[in-house]
Design a binder for these strands. Structure first.
Lengths: 117, 117
DNA sequence: CTTAGTGTACTGTGCATATAGTACACTAAT
DNA sequence: ATTAGTGTACTATATGCACAGTACACTAAG
């Protein structure tokens, strides 16, 4: 995975895990990689990996149990609502940015569909 | 202006100026605020403001003349092509993110138009 | 020439990030 | 009891960002 130099690495890894969870690539209750394992996979420092889980736990999408590891939450309503929030926010940000650039939602939608031709 | 704590301030201010230029809110050849003035307007450090123009000049959207100030480029083709690149990149990023979240361009376009009802 | 506005170049400080390395405590399985 | 895997907590170093403050050089206008 390549990192954007202008955002903290722990944030980018956290977002990657969040995406895995809300799209179901990581199932509810599933065990996530241990801190040291995560560090190896993403080629980051174990300390940075630890922070990923500390921050991710605050979102409620996972739970950490000392000595056992970190697990995807079993509460599927939390996951579903997180997915909703993510999509809503992504669309909102996109439209805001396009409005700044002088485009309307209609023209934005047209561009998206034109990409498919 | 409020800043995202997770991205450098100079980058965010630079993006704001870029947006002003490519949307025509700042005209070709127009003089931009001086470094100290920019610092006051955005409530940032003069050093940070200086960096904004140093980085912005690299994009070709403005030119700095020592003792005189920084000016929007007079080359309108540069501006037009920058505007194209920005929009294209924004749409591309949006579709990539939506794909990660399991949405298609069609569903994305539908969500955008639904926002307008 | 003097002045105001400007870009540029430093020093120094504080903070967050990311790294390396070490150590300790908890849990489950053997 | 031992072991492997795990979370957690430190120390220490290096880097980038943002800040405060100061100084100098260039340009145009009076």
């Amino acid at each position: 995975m390549e990192f954007d130099a202008n955002r903290p690495i722990w944030l980018q890894v956290m977002n990657a895990l969040e995406t895995d969870i809300i799209t179901g690539r990581r199932k509810p209750g599933e065990k996530l990689p241990g801190g040291r394992d995560l560090a190896l996979r993403f080629e980051i420092n174990p300390n940075t990996a630890a922070r990923v889980y500390q921050e991710l736990e605050k979102t409620g999408l996972c739970e950490t149990r000392r000595g056992m590891g970190t697990f995807v939450t079993g509460d599927e309503t939390v996951i579903a609502s997180a997915r909703n929030d993510f999509i809503r926010q992504t669309v909102k940000n996109f439209l805001q940015r396009m409005a700044q650039l002088g485009e309307t939602p209609q023209s934005a939608a047209r561009m998206i569909l034109r990409e498919e031709e």
